[in-house]
Simulated assay, not measured.
Amino acid sequence: MKDRVRIFEGIHNFRDYGGYAARDGRLKEGVLWRSGQHGGATPADLAGVAELGITTVIDLRGDSERQTMPCLRHDEFDGLVLFAPGETAGSELAPHEEAGQGITTAAEAKAAMTKLYVNMPFRDVLIRSLTLYFEALATRDGASLLHCLAGKDRTGLAAGLLHRLLGVHEDDVMADYLLTNEAGNQQRRIAAAGESIRERYGAQITDEAIVMLMGVDADYLHTATRSIAERYGSTERYAEEVLGVDAARRAALRERLVA
Rank of each mutant, 00 (worst) to 15 (best):
D45V: 07
Y201T: 10
E108T: 11
L93D: 11
R189L: 14
R254A: 04
I210A: 05
D16Y: 02
F14P: 01
E135S: 01
A44H: 15
R189D: 11
H163Y: 05
L161I: 06
T139G: 14
A252H: 05
A47S: 12
T114W: 14
G233H: 10
L145W: 01
D207R: 10
V173I: 01
S227C: 08
M69V: 14
M1S: 07
M69C: 12
R15C: 00
H163A: 03
A143M: 04
G194H: 07
R140T: 07
D16E: 03
K152R: 03
E97M: 09
T114S: 14
T139A: 15
D172M: 06
N119K: 14
F134A: 00
R198H: 04
R200Y: 01
V242F: 09
E170H: 12
Q67D: 15
E29S: 14
R128Q: 01
P121S: 09
R140M: 07
D207A: 12
D141T: 07
P70G: 07
S144K: 11
T139R: 12
R34E: 08
A99C: 08
G156W: 00
G30I: 14
A107V: 14
A111M: 10
P70H: 07
A239Y: 06
L161K: 00
A136W: 02
D45Q: 13
Y177G: 02
V173A: 00
I190V: 06
L130H: 01
A248V: 14
S196G: 12
R26I: 12
D124V: 10
G100A: 11
E51L: 07
E199D: 08
D3W: 10
A159D: 05
L93H: 10
V49E: 01
A252K: 05
I228C: 03
E29P: 12
D16A: 00
Q101W: 14
A89L: 04
M120L: 13
V49T: 05
Y201F: 13
A159K: 02
L145A: 05
E208A: 10
H38I: 07
L126T: 00
R154Q: 01
T68E: 15
W33F: 15
R4K: 09
F77T: 03
R34C: 04
G18T: 01
G184A: 09
C71F: 11
E76S: 12
P43Q: 13
L253E: 04
I205H: 01
R6S: 14
A41R: 07
D78L: 13
V31K: 12
A150W: 00
Q37W: 08
T88G: 03
L166K: 00
L179E: 01
I197M: 04
D59F: 03
M212K: 11
R123I: 05
L46P: 04
V211R: 13
G167T: 00
L60D: 01
D78K: 14
A159P: 04
I197L: 04
G48F: 11
K152F: 03
D219P: 13
Q37N: 15
D172H: 03
L166Q: 00
N13S: 05
D207W: 06
Q204I: 07
L130Y: 03
A191Q: 13
R254D: 04
I7C: 04
R154K: 03
V242E: 11
L46C: 06
F134R: 02
I54R: 05
Q186H: 15
D246V: 12
A106Y: 12
K152W: 02
R226V: 12
A41Q: 08
L93K: 08
S35P: 15
T104A: 08
G36E: 08
T235C: 15
Y238L: 06
D45K: 11
P95W: 03
E65P: 02
